[in-house]
């Protein structure tokens, strides 16, 4: 259980929520997870950049809000009719202040846009990726086809069985009793850490979207087109990271999670070799299919 925290840490959510001042500290302490009310800091350079932008814009908005709401509240208290306030009906216009409160926001906005633009440039730069994986979305599962050094590895990833039982209407199973309820799959995607991984996303039916919050990576999978996406998980942050499909894709949109198993490059290599061996074996089997082959293949789908 590397990355994302699981349930059970909900007690005290109320109190924590209002400790906004401690926010970044808390987020730092639980790196690569969300603390339950803020974005995760995540485990890629990108996710940290996004987090920084998010916090920057958030605090700017808070500052503006404190200022504006402060003035409003002051007015509400100070200029009450019931306290005998007399209206100053000459105060109806002032070109000077109006120019000020047009120009200052423009400056603030420019100050926000510049760092944001830098991050966009970086996000869109998929060059020099070291591993490409073709990700195909279906109603309601993901297919991962590895390219480059891992060419030939190819499998489907669907909601884990426990979750699938528990999520049926009035199943009677308590979701809290299911480990990683709705966030677990049968075959996670495996990637190496410290490597620039590029996903080539497409779909076979409707639009889906691939999202792992801890990577700061989200992109739509559009039928007939290929969208690109990249991330590079910090070395040392190996573990399991979870996400979900985020584009409404029909009945089981809520039930096509994404699980990424980040391993060290060496472990990843081992895994690839195992997979390739398994593929070979399967091919050999396919030549003389055992009677249960069909059942097996549907089960793994």
């Amino acid at each position: 259980m590397g990355g994302r925290r699981t349930g059970g840490r909900r007690t005290g959510a109320w109190t924590r929520a209002f400790c906004l001042a401690a926010l970044s500290v808390v987020a730092g302490a639980h790196a690569n997870t969300s603390n339950g009310y803020n974005l995760p800091l995540g485990v890629t350079g990108l996710s940290r950049d996004i987090y920084a932008l998010h916090m920057e814009v958030f605090w700017i908005c808070v500052a503006i809000a404190v200022g504006v709401f402060g003035v409003m509240i002051y007015a509400l208290v100070k200029f009450r009719h019931s306290q005998g306030a007399v209206p100053d009906t000459t105060l109806v216009h002032s070109t000077k202040v109006e120019i000020i409160w047009t120009v200052i926001p423009v400056i603030i906005l420019v100050a926000m846009a510049i760092p944001a633009a830098k991050v966009i440039l970086m996000m869109e730069d998929t060059r020099n990726s070291e591993l490409s994986i073709r990700v195909t979305a279906y109603q309601w599962k993901w297919q991962y086809q590895y390219m480059d050094a891992a060419e030939g590895v190819n499998f489907f990833s669907t909601l884990a069985r426990d979750s699938n039982f528990a999520r049926q209407l009035r199943s009677g199973i308590d979701p809290k009793s299911v480990e990683n309820y709705l966030l677990d799959v049968d075959h996670p995607m495996v990637i190496p850490s410290g490597t620039k991984v590029r996903l080539l996303l497409t779909s076979e039916d409707v639009i889906h979207a691939w999202w792992v919050p801890d990577f700061g990576a989200k992109r739509a999978a559009v039928p007939g087109f290929v969208n690109e996406l990249w991330f590079k998980v910090d070395p040392g942050k190996e573990g399991i990271y979870r996400g979900q499909c985020t584009s409404l894709c029909g009945r089981d949109h809520g039930f096509m999670p994404i699980v990424v198993d980040v391993r060290t490059p060496d472990d990843f290599k081992k895994w690839v070799d195992e997979q390739k061996a398994a593929v070979k074996q399967a091919a050999a089997h396919a030549a003389a299919p055992p009677p249960t082959a069909q059942v097996l293949s549907t089960a793994t789908n």
């Binding site: 925290r5 699981t6 349930g7 059970g8 840490r9 909900r10 959510a13 109320w14 929520a17 969300s34 603390n35 339950g36 009310y37 803020n38 974005l39 995760p40 999520r167 979701p175 809290k176 990683n180 309820y181 709705l182 966030l183 999202w211 919050p213 996400g243 979900q244 499909c245 985020t246 409404l248 949109h253 809520g254 039930f255």
Partner: peptide, 20 residues
């Protein structure tokens, strides 16, 4: 908070950490 913590919209059911 739910959104930032990672809860997608348009889902009828969610992971347990979003319960509160």
């Amino acid at each position: 908070f739910l959104g930032l913590a990672g809860m997608p919209r348009r889902i009828p059911d969610y992971a347990v950490q979003f319960t509160d």
